[in-house]
């Protein structure tokens, strides 16, 4: 039986290495707070313009004819640095918060590559706040994430600051510009 144990464990772990995390039922509660990484500013403002210099606007989807992907799937390109619950599974969409919540004005920005056009886009990850944790579609991708003391790049932080309540519900991923280079 010990051999079977080892075999099963080995099989399971090798499968794990080949299995995308989005296909996995994740534990609720792990990520009570939302987030994502690679910012431009110490405290980026959700509706503010990107940092001057290496970034240009305009915002929006890359091309109306481009397949949009599945915004309820953690693997969706613009979620590359999320740690939280996807607003699109919680009554909102990939760029709008669920009804009755408030979008955090303070957030941080990430840079994700859109496979449809190969461009890097600046993504603003804003938390949706004021209602309890959504619980659907936990998405934990930590590309470029840093610890809490590196505040502007930490997706562990509950960014429901500047809203009425710090209670975290879910997270959106809003395209705010094209990045010239990976941030």
């Amino acid at each position: 039986m010990a051999r079977m144990d080892r075999w099963m464990t080995g099989f399971a772990r090798s499968l794990a290495r080949r299995t995308s995390r989005r296909s996995v039922l994740a534990g609720i509660g792990t990520a009570l707070v939302g987030g994502a990484a690679v910012p431009l500013l110490p405290v980026a403002r959700g509706r503010a313009e990107p940092a001057p210099g290496d970034r240009v606007t305009p915002s929006g989807e890359p091309d109306p004819t481009t397949p949009a992907g599945d915004p309820q799937d953690c693997g969706y390109w613009r979620y590359c640095a999320v740690d939280g619950f996807l607003s699109s599974c919680c009554g909102g969409s990939h760029n709008a918060c669920p009804p009755g919540t408030q979008m955090s004005p303070i957030t941080w920005l990430g840079t994700c590559r859109n496979p449809a056009d190969g461009k890097e886009y600046v993504i603003s990850y804003n938390d949706c706040c004021g209602k309890d944790v959504c619980g659907s579609c936990i998405c934990r991708r930590h590309e470029g994430d840093k610890p809490v003391y590196y505040t502007p790049k930490s997706n562990d932080i509950d960014w429901c600051m500047g809203t009425r309540e710090i209670i975290y519900n879910s997270t959106v991923a809003v395209v705010v510009g094209v990045a010239r280079e990976k941030g």
Partner: peptide
Amino acid sequence: DKLADWTLGMAPDIAVD
């Protein structure tokens, strides 16, 4: 019990935190 052992590490979120 064995299923709990076998599945540990099978996915990133099924692990000791």
